[in-house]
Design a protein around this nucleic acid. Structure first.
Lengths: 207, 207
DNA sequence: ATGCAAAGTTGCGTTTACTGCAAGCTTTCG
DNA sequence: CGAAAGCTTGCAGTAAACGCAACTTTGCAT
C-alpha cells in the first residue's frame, strides 16, 4: 500500500463514485430530484441499482457527494491552527479561501436544492455537522464546553454567515464584483460575532 | 356554522388526530421510531393506515404534530406587536412564556429525537420555518430584506438560543432551579445579539 | 324525517427507496 | 498460479407514500 500510487482498485472506485454523482446531478438538474429514480441514476452511470447504494447510503447523499471533503478541510484547518490563533480568524480565512470552490457544480446543486423543503432540510443537517466542528473550536477558545450557550450562539451565527455568503454569491447579478462582496459579507459577520462576544464577556455564568 | 360551537365532524377529527399522535408517541417511545411502522400506529389508533396519511403527510409529521401551534403563536406575537416594539423584546418574552410548554410530551419527544440523525434534521427544518418568521420581523426592525445578512445572522442566533435553552432544560439535573437558569440563558443570548447588532450598526453596506 | 350532497374513511394496487443475502467476478498478494 | 479479499450484481423482501374508487358518516334543506 504505497501511499503515493493509487491501485487500480482505488482508481476504479473513485471513478465509479464520480460517475454516479455526475450522472445523478445531470438527471436531477434536467428532470428534477423527485422525478429521477435511483434506477435512472444507475442506468445513466452504467452500474446496478444495488451498487449505487453501496457507494452512497441514500439518494440524498448522492446529491451532496462532495460535502465530505469540505468537512475534512475545515476540520484540518481548525485542528491544525497554531496555538493562540482565534478560531474566528481561521474561519474567516477558510471561508474566503473556499469561495472559489463554490463553482459551477455547486451552483447547479443550489438550483436543485433551493426549491425543495426536503433537500433544504438535508442541507441544514450537513451544515449542523460543520457546526459541531466549529462549536468544538470556539468552545476551546472560550474555555467552555461545546454545548454551552456561547459556543452554540457563535457557531449558529457562523453557519448563518456561511450560508448567507453562499446564497449571496448565487444571487449576485454582477459576477465580477461578487467576490469582493462576499468578503465584505464575511467581514461584517465576523464583526457581528466579535461585538456579541464582547457584550457577554463580562457576563456572569449563573448556570 | 356558529363559530363558538364545533360541529360533531370537527370534534371527531380533532380527537382522531390526537389519538393518532398519542398512539404514535407511545409506540415511538417504547419501541423506537424506526421499529414502529405506520401500520402499528394505525392499529393502535384504531384507524386504517390510509387514514393516518390523510391526517399527516408523513410519519415524521406525526411525531412533530404540535409544532404547528407553536408556530402560529409566534407568528401572532410578532405580527401583533405594538409599533415601535423591538422584535427582540417580543422574542424574549415569547421564549420565557413558552418555557412551561416544554412539558412532559416535549420531553418524551426529545428522547426520541435526540439519538436519530434523520429526526434531528427534520427538527432543524422545523426550526428553520420558525426562523423565517423571525427573520421577517427582524428585517422589518432594521429596514432590510429578510434574506439580507443582518436579519439572517440575528435569526440564526435566536434559533440557537432557543435550541440551547430547550436542550438545557432537559439536561438540567435540578428541576426546580431550571426555570431561573433558562431565563438567564435567554437573557445572555439577547445580550449577545444586542452587542452584535451594535457592533455592525455603523457598518457600511457595500453589497 | 328523509334524502341528497359533501366530507371522511377504507381497502387495494402501485411506485420507490432501501436492506440482506448469496453467488459470481476482479483485483491483489503470497 | 492460486487463494483471499473486495466489488458488483440479481433477487427477494420491507416499509413509506400516493392515487383511486367504493363505502360510510355527517350536515343540511326541504
Amino acid at each position: 500500500m504505497h501511499e503515493g500510487e493509487a491501485g487500480l482498485r482505488e482508481r476504479k472506485k473513485r471513478r465509479t463514485r464520480e460517475q454516479i454523482a455526475a450522472a445523478a446531478l445531470e438527471l436531477f438538474s434536467a428532470r428534477g430530484y423527485h422525478a429521477t429514480t435511483v434506477a435512472d441514476i444507475a442506468a445513466a452511470a452504467e452500474v446496478s441499482e444495488r451498487t449505487v447504494f453501496s457507494y452512497f447510503p441514500s439518494k440524498e447523499d448522492v446529491l451532496f457527494a462532495d460535502h465530505l471533503s469540505l468537512e475534512q478541510g475545515l476540520a484540518e484547518a481548525l485542528d491544525g491552527r497554531p496555538p493562540g490563533t482565534p478560531a474566528l480568524d481561521v474561519l474567516r480565512e477558510f471561508v474566503v479561501e473556499n469561495l472559489s470552490r463554490f463553482d459551477e457544480q455547486a451552483r447547479i446543486r443550489w438550483q436543485i436544492v433551493r426549491g425543495d423543503e426536503l433537500l433544504l432540510a438535508h442541507q441544514r443537517a450537513r451544515q449542523a455537522a460543520l457546526g459541531e466542528l466549529i462549536a468544538r473550536a470556539i468552545a476551546a477558545d472560550l474555555g467552555e464546553r461545546p454545548d454551552d450557550l456561547r459556543p452554540q450562539l457563535v457557531t449558529a451565527a457562523v453557519i448563518a454567515a456561511f450560508t448567507a455568503t453562499y446564497e449571496h454569491r448565487f444571487r449576485a447579478r454582477s459576477r465580477t464584483a461578487s467576490r469582493a462582496q462576499a468578503v465584505a459579507v464575511v467581514d461584517e459577520a465576523i464583526e457581528f460575532l466579535r461585538g456579541g462576544l464582547d457584550a457577554i464577556r463580562a457576563y456572569p455564568r449563573p448556570y
